[in-house]
Design a protein around this nucleic acid. Structure first.
Length: 382
RNA sequence: GGAGAGAUGGCCGAGUGGUUUAAGGCGCACGCCUGGAAAGCGUGUUUACCUGAAAGGGUAACGAGGGUUCGAAUCCCUCUCUCUCCGCCA
């Protein structure tokens, strides 16, 4: 969620940035500010009436204590009308707040000025590429054939146990999976990240705070009996560790890493995108999450990219770095790099990592702030 | 699943209808004192929104949501969570 003070004070900039998403940026911002003005007007009126009421109640208390019952009764009759208008104003205020909130929730994050214009993945900018692209010839087998041949994993067994998209890893395949997880975790820990093992299910409040709800309701597995969601990424629980918190200066930066399985319904996916392990309902992922002061966030984004590059180089994989265009970015990101690895037999680039700066978009929703220089106001983290 | 107890500020903890403007303590910050420190003394110490150039002022919040009342941390209802005991159980 974008911050209202930001929209109020930097309207032009906000519109210009949001326009990169190919949406009606001016309209959305104008509406947000209009709703804000309405809300403030109502609150002003309501606060005034409440102050009057408080004053009256205090006076009645004094009269009662002074034994002036008759005068107190007279004062009481005066409150009736006031009470009615307060009731009404409270309802209007609640309504205005909800409408404003709902509207703000529909506005995506404002892309950074470096984000290229564009609508589709073809418009993404290749920042760099490294490693040797293998020339495998026509007989090269894709991973789903190799997996079967060497008993590394089975999608058919997963179908028996659960359904399509739930792979069963076995033997060397299981060992490779475990080794990769350990490798990524260890590398992160030696770089200074703290390892966490979070729950694999979260409540609705957590899913809302990181933006999965209401946006991606249908993409998460929902355990209805207990109203819990299977996490689509470790980002959800690890980021929610800091929900409703005010951090001290000294506590920043926060650097966490965690491995979890991830669950995604992937409704609407089809074709070659879902062959083999390209896109499955349950997969393993190691997530790194950083909470930073605003002035550091973009430098840290580059730092995180370097970390991931180091991993890909160590694994000797041919990879490239993309800067996503405005049309291809996620809802809550201000700038995203995707890291892709070249799959020789499939002859295509596959996303293996995605690194985003959210600016204050997530922390505003999480109510995650820190005590900064300005003592009058706690700031959202990046 | 059943029974009981509980949820108050950064922490402990008082508070059963009206100076609660949340006592008291701990912690923290600043000042005084000191050669320096400790102790002692004094002052301050939540968050969100509104208003204001600022100083300041207003409103709301005592687990959450409703209700009673001129007035609720306090009384009533519902829910959530924690603890203790019992039952059931991979």
């Amino acid at each position: 969620m974008l911050e209202l003070p930001y929209l109020r004070e930097n309207r032009e900039e906000a519109v210009a940035r949001l326009s990169k998403r190919n949406i009606d940026a001016a309209g959305l911002v104008a509406k947000a500010l209009e709703l804000d003005e309405q809300r403030r007007a109502i609150q002003n009126e309501a606060d005034g009436k409440l102050a009057e009421m408080n004053e009256l109640s205090r006076a009645i208390g004094e009269l009662m204590k002074g034994g002036k019952k008759a005068e107190a009764e007279v004062a009481k009759t005066k409150t009736t009308e006031l009470k009615g208008s307060i009731q009404l104003l409270k309802e209007r205020l609640e309504n205005a707040e909800k409408i404003q909130q709902d509207h703000l929730c529909t506005i995506p994050n404002a892309p950074n000025s470096k984000v290229p214009l564009g609508r589709t993945p073809e418009d993404n900018k290749v920042v760099m590429q490294d490693g040797i692209i293998p020339e495998l010839g026509a007989a090269a087998k894709p991973h789903w054939e190799l997996g079967e041949e060497y008993n590394l994993f089975s999608l058919d067994l997963g179908v028996k146990l659960t359904g399509a998209g739930f792979p069963v890893y076995s033997g060397q395949g299981a060992k490779l999976q475990r080794a990769l997880i350990a490798f990524f975790l260890d590398k992160a820990v030696t770089t200074g990240y703290r390892e966490v093992i979070p729950p694999h299910m979260v409540n609705a409040a957590s899913a809302f705070a990181t933006g999965q709800l209401p946006d991606k309701e249908g993409q998460m597995y929902h355990a209805v009996a207990d109203d819990l969601y299977l996490i689509p990424t470790a980002e959800v629980p690890i980021t929610n560790l800091y929900r409703d918190m005010i951090l001290d200066d000294a506590q920043l930066p926060v650097k966490n890493v965690g491995y979890t399985p991830c669950f995604r319904r992937e409704a609407g996916s089809y074709g070659k995108d879902v062959r083999g392990l390209n896109r499955v309902h349950q997969f393993d992922k190691v997530e790194i999450v950083r909470i930073e002061k605003p002035e550091n966030s973009y430098a840290v984004l580059e730092e995180m990219v370097e970390h991931v590059k180091g991993l890909l180089q160590a694994l000797e994989l041919p990879y490239r770095q993309l800067l996503l265009c405005g049309g291809d970015m996620g809802f809550s990101s201000a700038m995203t790099y995707d890291m892709e690895v070249y799959a020789g037999a499939q002859k295509r680039w596959l996303e293996v990592s995605s690194i985003s700066c959210f600016e204050t978009f997530q922390s505003n929703r999480l109510k995650l702030r820190y005590r900064g220089e300005d003592k009058n106001r706690n700031c959202c983290t990046h």
